[in-house]
Design a protein around this nucleic acid. Structure first.
Length: 285
DNA sequence: AACCCCATCAACCGCCATTCC
DNA sequence: TGGAATGGCGGTTGATGGGGT
């Protein structure tokens, strides 16, 4: 089915909207709604196609549109959601009240992508430095942050310095752990790639399918407890296997999610679990 | 002052999914 | 049931303005 673009009709205006056109469109929609975008411009007396009217309304004229720069919290949300959802701008916008998919897409391409690149670059250098540390120590580098004191405890490794807020993504240079400002009571523990290989040397796809079939994430939780992770912490693993992608939905109901990133060589999956909100924990505490 | 480069963002394009008839 | 109409989405474009030379 091939259909001509809706704006190809001769005489329909394109390009930037004038204040007069905006006024006509807003007045019409507030009075009559927008049940049929195709018919709307003709009924409203606009020389625009319906698609153009819809975009103008949804991206600019809607009364609930939030104007102004994105806050750090909003940027963090976009980072997080983009990790989870990819370029699904409308899905991301749905979780940012007052922001449009177009706006988020623009800010991603103009600001956030650069920040992410800087962050990943800093991670690469950090990973390199951690690798050097590993060569001088057999101990794992699995870190936690005490939310009260700000101290970082490295499980099986010497303590490291306090870490940075994720709002500082563009400037972080030591990012083996990142706090999560979306929840004041949670902490992300970041396990670097080579450490995860050492820490979970036996993990493969069968391990994860078994894990996910176990109700209440028992094995995962026991692993957390075994390694001293408090139940009110948010933990992050990096694991080199694709089953994490399938895990995303399974963990959704227990306040966890996965994300994927490309380190330039292959794909990795992060698993975030809000440990304190996992159900049926007592037997592991 | 003139020109160039780059960042920004509103708007458009093309495709896909859903709804309608 | 199938084709047409419509809405919605993500990618891309291009006008604009600001800063640098």
């Amino acid at each position: 089915m091939v259909r001509a673009p809706c704006c190809e009709k001769i005489g329909l205006k394109k390009g930037p909207w004038s204040p007069e056109e905006d006024h006509v469109l807003v007045s019409y929609i507030l009075k009559n709604g927008h049940a049929n975008w195709r018919a709307l411009p003709k009924l409203a007396g606009l020389l625009r196609c319906g698609k153009s009217c819809r975009l103008r309304w949804t991206n600019y004229l809607r009364p609930d549109i939030k104007r102004g720069n994105f806050t750090k919290e909003e940027e963090e949300t976009i980072f997080t959601l983009h990790e989870m959802l990819g370029n699904r701008w409308s899905a991301i916008a749905a979780r940012l009240p007052g922001r449009t998919d177009n706006e988020i897409k623009n800010v991603w391409h103009t600001h956030l992508k650069k920040k992410l690149k800087n962050y990943q670059t800093s991670q690469d250098s950090n990973r390199h430095s951690i690798n050097n540390v590993q060569k001088s120590s057999d101990k794992s580098n699995f870190n936690t942050i005490d939310q009260q004191t700000g101290n970082v405890t490295s499980l099986g490794c010497a303590p490291v310095s306090p870490q940075h807020s994720s709002s500082e993504l563009s400037t972080v240079t030591d990012s083996s752990a990142v706090t999560d400002s979306t929840n004041n009571n949670t902490v992300i523990i970041k396990q670097e790639k080579m450490e995860s290989l050492e820490y979970f040397p036996q993990i493969d796809e069968s391990f994860w399918s078994e894990e996910l079939s176990v109700n209440n994430n028992a094995n995962m939780q026991s692993e957390l407890i075994h390694h001293g992770v408090a139940t009110n912490e948010l933990v992050q693993f990096q694991l080199p296997s694709s089953p994490m992608a399938a895990a995303a939905n399974d963990y959704e109901d227990v306040n966890a999610y996965t994300s994927r990133f490309d380190d330039g060589m292959d794909f990795w999956y992060n698993l975030y679990i809000r440990a304190g909100e996992l159900p049926d924990l007592p037997e592991f505490v």
